[in-house]
Amino acid sequence: MTGPGEATGRFLPGYTSFMIARPHDRPPRPTPALLPGEERPSHIGPAKLDDWTGGWIAQLAAPSAERMGAGAEQILWDVATGSQARTASDADGGWTVVQRGPVRLWDRVERAVQRRQSADEPHQDRFGITVSAAGQRVWLGTEDGPGWDLPI
């Protein structure tokens, strides 16, 4: 249902993404220094972010973060706050995460991936978006389902 200044609908099948316009490309940034932080076990396998929809979900959960790495070794660096998260394999066959900064990036990503897992890991076409004067929200299943508010 839509009205003036409002829109809602589902993402199309396939792989929806947008290319940054050349004049809007981010300015060069230094390589992030991997600083110490709080370490804990990760509740998800970091490789979940390597699949298309998994990476997309991570971006919804941490919209100003850049992701580097693959598999067990992922780095998230929030360019807005300087927050960091980095994952690694542990000796028991699991994973650890080290986080620092005001935003717990991996906590947000874990919750988002776990939401998707509890819904049987749907593809992007099971998600929708609602845009209104109040903001923009991506949701899973139905408009009142779990979702993520996008920055304006």
Results as ranks from 00 to 15, higher is better:
26 R>I: 06
79 V>R: 13
125 D>Y: 07
151 P>E: 13
112 A>S: 09
32 P>V: 03
64 S>R: 15
131 V>Y: 07
149 D>P: 01
84 Q>T: 08
66 E>M: 04
78 D>L: 09
47 A>N: 06
34 L>D: 13
110 E>D: 04
148 W>R: 10
43 H>C: 02
3 G>R: 14
123 H>M: 12
88 A>K: 07
37 G>I: 07
33 A>F: 05
142 T>R: 13
78 D>P: 05
6 E>R: 12
35 L>P: 03
143 E>D: 12
20 I>T: 15
139 W>L: 02
90 D>H: 08
34 L>R: 15
122 P>Y: 08
88 A>R: 10
100 R>C: 04
56 W>K: 06
133 A>V: 14
135 G>I: 08
96 T>H: 07
116 R>C: 01
108 R>N: 09
44 I>H: 01
98 V>L: 08
29 R>F: 05
12 L>D: 14
73 E>R: 10
61 A>Q: 11
137 R>A: 01
118 S>F: 07
69 G>V: 01
140 L>V: 13
76 L>N: 01
22 R>T: 15
80 A>I: 12
136 Q>E: 12
120 D>N: 13
66 E>D: 10
114 Q>F: 03
3 G>W: 13
107 D>F: 03
34 L>M: 14
7 A>V: 09
60 L>C: 05
92 D>E: 14
1 M>P: 10
49 L>W: 00
86 R>W: 10
15 Y>E: 14
15 Y>Q: 15
14 G>V: 10
65 A>N: 12
55 G>K: 03
18 F>I: 15
